[in-house]
Nucleic acid binder design. Sequence first.
RNA 1: UCCGGGAUUGUGUAGUGGUAGCACGUGUGACUCUGAAUCACAUAGCCUAGGUUCGAAUCCUAGUCCCGGAGCCA
Length: 551
Amino acid sequence: MEHKASSNFIKNIINEDLKSGKVDHIITRFPPEPNGYLHIGHAKSIILNFELADEFKGKTHLRFDDTNPVKEDTEYVESIKEDVTWLGYKWDELFFASDYFEEMYNRAVLLIKKGKAYVCDSTAEEIRKMRGSLIEVGQKSPYRDRSVEENLELFERMRQGEFEDGQKVLRAKIDMDSPNINMRDPVLYRIAHATHHNTGDKWCIYPMYDFAHPLEDAIEGITHSICTLEFEDHRPLYDWVIRECEMEQVPHQYEFARLNITNTVMSKRKLKQLVDEHVVDGWDDPRMPTISGLRRKGYTPEAIRSFAREIGVAKADSVVDSKMLEFFIREDLKLKAPRTMGVLEPLKVVITNYPADQVEMLEAEINSENPEMGTRQIPFSREIYIEQDDFMENPPAKYFRLFPGNEVRLKNAYFIKCNDIVKDEAGKVIELHCTYDPETKSGTGFTGRKVKGTIHWVEASQAVSAEFRQYEPLILDQEEDDDTSFLEHINPNSLEIVQGFVEANIKDSKPQDKFQFFRHGYFNVDPLSLKQGKLIFNRIVSLKSSFQLNK
RNA sequence: UCCGGGAUUGUGUAGUGGUAGCACGUGUGACUCUGAAUCACAUAGCCUAGGUUCGAAUCCUAGUCCCGGAGCCA
């Protein structure tokens, strides 16, 4: 079912590393910062890291890169673990960057002793100014040549909490003339009197990403440290830290292009904004590209994994068509989901020549493409509901559904022919009177005549009320990716809620159960279903359709 | 302007000197008790210009265009 992904440049590198003897095993890692929920872009990275390890018989660590207490929270730690697990992966080891704070501190002391780091009293503003620009070199800090002894003492006092936030930082002493701004004496440690979700108030100095991350990788023996493109410029610093801190293990960093999908925002910052400003109901709103949102919408881990394999891994920026994602969930659910009938916008039909007191049971396949799923019994009687869209009083040419005088098949039941229309005062069609032909019963092999259309229906007396939530892309097409105004491209019709009916035999469905409603698409039972005491179905994805009313 | 990357059908990706392939999408037809699915066919590509070579997407040279980089964020 799930086929192996084709090659990619990282896989090629690993193959070469193994062949050349540069490494004899591989260890990868997924290193999220616990400051938000995971989205499908993270899924790409998770799948890449775990499957690379699988393929080469290596290991993968889950490591929380929790070096900034002001943004992080255990809520996020828990959701991240849940999402990785749900995607189908088991980390070989679970770590927190904060577990290494003591070791990192000691490595910083080593740097100071080697004359490779110094305590700088400049303000953030001063440091920024003296860093120079993309085309101008930087200026050396006046504190750059402090003695090792003084630096050691000051750094120790930073740790002891003798200074306020922002009063001092520890900086690497590298090269203020470097064309790579990351090498112009980057900050290694800052002071933050903040409570850390893991270490509490033990520390008031915290290592910066550029210092912490390479050490984390080296400590854990990561062989291939895979990150996104924006860290490419940091690689020389990554290597510098590992070398100057004299780490025994030498990991290497490789960068790939992050995932973009059409009509989808994919940054934690923007997603958080959607949540904070109540544009959506939360991180798990089915319109969100978060793992939890996709899960609630009804996506399966298998579909997400297949998608990730198919889109590949490369260094060129790209935007994947969201139709690709939709293809994989349809593909996955095709044989798994029971197929049943649901009428989303009901129109009552009275079958005038059917006995008023009779209810008969009809047999129907649960999934015609997967006969192993068996059959079910569905009731049929004088009154049923059909879809409003399946009737037109004055249809255009090539309309195969019901209209006055036309005959269609009711899926799994009989041919019916429309004879009369009942309207309300406003002229709206509220009921149809039809007749059925007993000879056309499904399964009898009737071939007397053919109809062009087959429509779905639900028997009225036993129909179960249900709510259907139909989703459209949250974000409309946007010319340029103008960071500031993505909120202006919110689709006002991203959610449409309708009340209809489903077959009685699925009335006891549980949250996350998935069905195909004939001719509509795949739906997932929302977790809210239980709480609200009624069935709520989220549309995962519609069925493809070539039918256009106005052609 | 400085540094680092990138460019293969509409989209995503493979190909690393020897017939440019795969997936999605799109179109047409067949079939159909889902206007679905399925099947068949079609669709369309190596950024440009030179060079090396029997042979170049691949190697060389020079351009063009796009992306990222100046947090005490990651």
